[in-house]
Simulated scan of single mutants.
Amino acid sequence: MKIKISYGLLLAAVFSVATFGKAHAQAEQKELAVGDKMPAFALTDQNGKRFNSADYLGKNFLVIYFYPKDESMVCTKEACQFRDSFNDFTKAGAKVIGINAGTVESHKSFTDHYKLPFILLSDPDNVVYHKFGVKNKMFMTGRQTFVVDKEGKIAFTYTAMMQGKKHADDALAFVKGHK
């Protein structure tokens, strides 16, 4: 007896298993909260240089923001707000770092297009994204900002998908209030 399975049914089954597995894994990842230690990480920046988080601990506040995609509307507004506030972040003793799964080349193009003065890191497999416990939203990687203090602990976090500009504003207000 032969069993005939349609390709559509097979694809639906595979997609269901993959989606459930991904959702289950994401549900188990713990989102970092205030007081948690920042996980150590190393990624490549928009200039092809290796960035190691350990090199910055004890020297600066780290404002680490995760965003879905270079050149998208909300992500561009968010990046430009961090750019426009960059001198204020620097004066307050903070280093701004953007992270997403985009390529080094995409980040370089995005940086050049909008004259972004801060570091953009490529996390192609979302390893650091998962270490921080950032959750996917609406079939996209999430948008979340963390401020890490000089002792390497999460001091502030902000999550909002559609308020990109507010990520920079709220992180800056926090850093200025905790110099």
Results as ranks from 00 to 15, higher is better:
F110S: 01
V134C: 06
F51V: 00
T103P: 08
A13P: 12
E105D: 14
K37W: 10
Y56W: 02
G102I: 01
K49G: 11
P117Y: 00
A173W: 08
L11S: 15
L120A: 11
A54L: 08
M138I: 08
G8Y: 14
F139H: 11
F61P: 10
S6L: 10
H107L: 02
K179M: 09
S122Q: 06
H113G: 06
A92T: 03
G164K: 01
V104G: 04
K165A: 01
G164A: 04
A40Q: 12
L62R: 02
I97H: 03
F110P: 01
A101E: 11
V104Y: 12
F132H: 05
A27D: 15
I99T: 10
G58W: 03
E71G: 09
G133M: 06
D84I: 01
N52V: 08
G58Q: 07
K166M: 06
M1W: 13
G164Y: 02
D149A: 00
V104T: 09
K153F: 07
E31A: 10
I119S: 11
S53G: 01
M162Q: 12
S122N: 05
N60T: 07
I97T: 02
A79T: 02
Y67R: 09
N87K: 14
N52P: 07
L121R: 03
D169N: 09
T111M: 14
T111V: 14
T76G: 00
H167G: 09
P117R: 00
D45C: 11
G133W: 02
V134S: 06
T145M: 04
G133F: 05
T44M: 10
K115G: 04
N126R: 13
A92V: 00
A94T: 02
L62K: 00
V14K: 14
V148S: 03
G102T: 05
V63W: 05
L121G: 05
N126V: 04
Y65Q: 03
A160N: 15
M161G: 09
L10I: 08
T103H: 08
G133R: 07
K22S: 13
